[in-house]
Computed example of a mutant assay.
Amino acid sequence: MNLTLTAKSQLIRDKAKELGFDLCGIAEADFLSEEKERFIDWLDKDYHGEMGYMANNIEKRLDPRLLVENTKSIVMVALNYFPENTQEDSEAPVLAKYAYGKDYHFVIKEKLNALLEYINQEIGETQGRAFVDSAPILEHAWARKAGLGWIGKNSLLLNRKIGSFLFLGELLIDMELEYENPIYQDFCGGCSKCIRSCPTGAITEPYVVNGSKCISYFTIELKDEIPEVMKGKFENRVFGCDICQDVCPWNRMAKGNTVPEFEPNPDLLALSKEDMETMDAHQFGEVFRNSAVKRTKFKGFKRNLDFLQD
């Protein structure tokens, strides 16, 4: 079957939707020239903090063809993770919404591999790889280039229909396809709620986030002790942070996700302030067995809790 580029691309978009992805767009793999200066400047300002890996493989981050040989197209997908229900105890230390359900890395990777298999079986033989936060790829830049949304002032991808509570993933394949028009229009307008609401001042200017001042960085990425200067600035966040998303007007229309794997663990939502403060390693392992919270390990989780209490 000799399919046109348009037909191939539409079949991929349709299959992605069938697999449960909320958004799917396709971009031509090339060099992200418009991102280079901005990314280098971000690194030079040490905005990556102790995330040393961000300074590795810079050329691969800017050109995916160096990451996976013969890559011609990048199929970008997005999956809504906004939950219908949130934590029950208003005084309990707050967990980022993305950690309520099963770890998204496994969920999206499985769906992407199914999409790759479909392409090989129904569209044409192709070589490619699926990635979900597992390679040096500037996902937000590629998502914008694939037409999934624009980059908001909090540096996150925003979509006019479903907001920003989105997981991203991508397929790098050696098949030529039809490509979307990038979204460079800024629909944030004069709004600056995310900037004004960030308690640590991590959003240093519109579209620029000092990662080393972000609550998510302190509670997940940082392995050392949290700096004393941050005392009282976490607004009770113990793992990750959603503040810049919670205040975003574009998230007023966010609807609960329909992904079974992202259904919040009832035990997690039911945790009280006392439950968290008295939790032992065994209980931590049970409650957060499938959650991204396990990234902090019990030691890191206790460190975060202690920091909030002191």
Rank of each mutant, 00 (worst) to 15 (best):
M1A: 12
D306G: 12
I137W: 02
P182A: 15
N304S: 00
N159Q: 01
N181C: 09
D246I: 09
Y179I: 04
K231F: 13
R252Y: 12
G285T: 07
A96Y: 07
N120T: 07
L66D: 05
P136Q: 04
L172K: 09
E263N: 11
G256R: 10
D186M: 06
D310Q: 15
E225G: 11
K299P: 03
P260H: 04
V94H: 13
N80M: 02
I58C: 03
I119Q: 03
M54A: 14
P264V: 06
V209K: 05
Y184V: 11
L79V: 10
V287P: 11
E170F: 06
E274H: 04
N210G: 11
W150A: 09
N56F: 15
D275C: 05
D89T: 08
T86D: 15
K193H: 12
F284L: 08
L156E: 14
K45F: 10
I173G: 10
K231R: 08
L158Y: 14
N113M: 12
S155K: 04
G163E: 04
N159T: 06
E91H: 14
R160D: 14
C244V: 05
V132F: 07
K213C: 00
D41Q: 12
I151C: 07
L32A: 11
R295H: 13
A135Y: 01
E59C: 10
V75T: 05
E91I: 06
N57W: 09
D22T: 08
S9P: 06
S197P: 01
L115E: 12
E110N: 12
S197C: 03
A270S: 15
G211P: 07
M279S: 01
M276T: 01
E180P: 05
C194K: 14
M76R: 00
C191T: 07
D46T: 15
V107L: 08
L79P: 04
D246H: 11
G163F: 09
G232C: 03
K111G: 00
H282R: 15
V77H: 00
N265P: 07
